[in-house]
C-alpha cells in the first residue's frame, strides 16, 4: 500500500510535467488549430539555455525565470519568422512546418551542446519525507508545487486579464476580433511565446530526472500528446487533468503491469483508444463531423 501511494505521488509529479507540456500544446492548438510537433524540442532547447546559464555561475532561481523569458521570446520569434508566412496554409502544411522546426531545433541543439547526456541541477533535494507512511521525495513535491503554480498563473492570465481575453478572442474568431481592434497576429505570437515558456518549464522540471540531451523530450512529448488528447485538445483544464491521469496511469502500469520499457506504449495506447472511442476527450466540445 505504501509503495502504491509512492507510485501515485511520483505519478502526480510526472503528471505535472506532462500537464505543462500538454498545456503548451493546447495553447497553440487554440490559437491556430494546430498541434505543434516542435513543442518538445523547443522545451529541450530552452532547458539547454537554462543549463548554460547555471553552468556560467548563475543561481538556479535567477536562471529559471530568465530561461523562461528567453523561451517566451524564442516562441514569439518562431511564430513571426516561421509560422506567420504559412498561417493561412492548410493544416497539413503547418504540421510539416512544425516537424521541420522540430528536426531543425534538435539538430541545432546537438550541434551547439553536443549529444553527451548531462545531469541537470534540481533545487529540490532527493531526500524523502514520510507522508502517511509513504516515502515521498522533496523533488516530487517541488515539481508538483511548481507545476501547480504555473498552471494557476496561466489560468489567471487567460481568464482574468484583458490580454488573456484578447488572446482567446483572437484564437476563436480572428476576423471578428480584428473588427474589435485586437491585433490578432500579435496575439498568436504571444500565444506561441506563452506556450514556449510553459513547455520550457516542463523541460526544466524533467531534466534532473532524465539527464539533459537533445532527444530528452522525444518521449515526454508523447506523454504530453496523450494528456492533451485525453483531456480534449482544446481544453486547458483537460490538459491538466489529462496530464495527471496519464502520469499516474503510466507510473502504475510501469511498476505493476508492463514494466518500465513499455510505459511509452501505454501512452500510445491511451492516444489511440481516446481517438477511436472518444475523439473529443474528456473536456473537449463535440465538433461537427464530416461524412
Amino acid at each position: 500500500m505504501q509503495e502504491f501511494l509512492q507510485q501515485v505521488v511520483s505519478g502526480i509529479a510526472s503528471g505535472g510535467i506532462f500537464a505543462s507540456l500538454a498545456l503548451a500544446l493546447v495553447l497553440i492548438y487554440n490559437a491556430m488549430g494546430l498541434v505543434n510537433f516542435a513543442q518538445g524540442e523547443m522545451a529541450m532547447f530552452a532547458t539547454f539555455v537554462a543549463y548554460a546559464l547555471i553552468e556560467n555561475g548563475m543561481s538556479y532561481w535567477i536562471a529559471l525565470p530568465l530561461a523562461l523569458v528567453l523561451a517566451f521570446a524564442g516562441g514569439v520569434l518562431i511564430q513571426r519568422v516561421v509560422i506567420r508566412p504559412v498561417e493561412r496554409a492548410p493544416v497539413l502544411t503547418l504540421v510539416i512546418v512544425t516537424l521541420g522546426l522540430a528536426t531543425l531545433i534538435n539538430g541545432l541543439a546537438g550541434f551547439v551542446f553536443g549529444y553527451i547526456p548531462r545531469s541537470f541541477p534540481s533545487p529540490f533535494s532527493v531526500q524523502t519525507v514520510s507522508v502517511l507512511g509513504a516515502l515521498i521525495s522533496f523533488r516530487d513535491l517541488g515539481v508538483i508545487a511548481v507545476s501547480a503554480l504555473v498552471l494557476v498563473l496561466i489560468y489567471l492570465l487567460l481568464q482574468r486579464t484583458t490580454l488573456g481575453l484578447a488572446m482567446r478572442a483572437a484564437a476563436h474568431n480572428p476576423d471578428a476580433s480584428r473588427l474589435l481592434g485586437v491585433r490578432v497576429s500579435w496575439m498568436l505570437a504571444l500565444g506561441w511565446g506563452l506556450a514556449s515558456a510553459v513547455g520550457a518549464l516542463s523541460g526544466i522540471m524533467v531534466a534532473p530526472i532524465l539527464l539533459l540531451e537533445p532527444n530528452m523530450m522525444q518521449t515526454i512529448i508523447i506523454y504530453a500528446f496523450a494528456a492533451a488528447v485525453l483531456g480534449g485538445i482544446e481544453s486547458p483544464l483537460g490538459a491538466v487533468v489529462g496530464g495527471l491521469i496519464v502520469g499516474i496511469t503510466v507510473n502504475l502500469a510501469g511498476a505493476y503491469l508492463v514494466g518500465g520499457d513499455l510505459q511509452l506504449a501505454v501512452a500510445f495506447l491511451i492516444i489511440v483508444a481516446v481517438l477511436v472511442i472518444k475523439p473529443n476527450g474528456l473536456f473537449g466540445r463535440p465538433s461537427v463531423r464530416r461524412v
Binding site: 484578447a166 482567446r168 478572442a169 476576423d175 473588427l179 474589435l180 485586437v182
Partner: peptide
C-alpha cells in the same frame, strides 16, 4: 458586419469587454 461578428465562444460580458478594451 453581416452575421454580427459575435464571438460565440465567449460570454456576453466578455464580448462587451472586448468592445471597450
Amino acid at each position: 458586419p453581416e452575421g454580427r461578428g459575435i464571438l460565440t465562444d465567449l460570454t456576453v460580458e466578455e464580448n462587451l469587454r472586448l468592445g471597450e478594451h
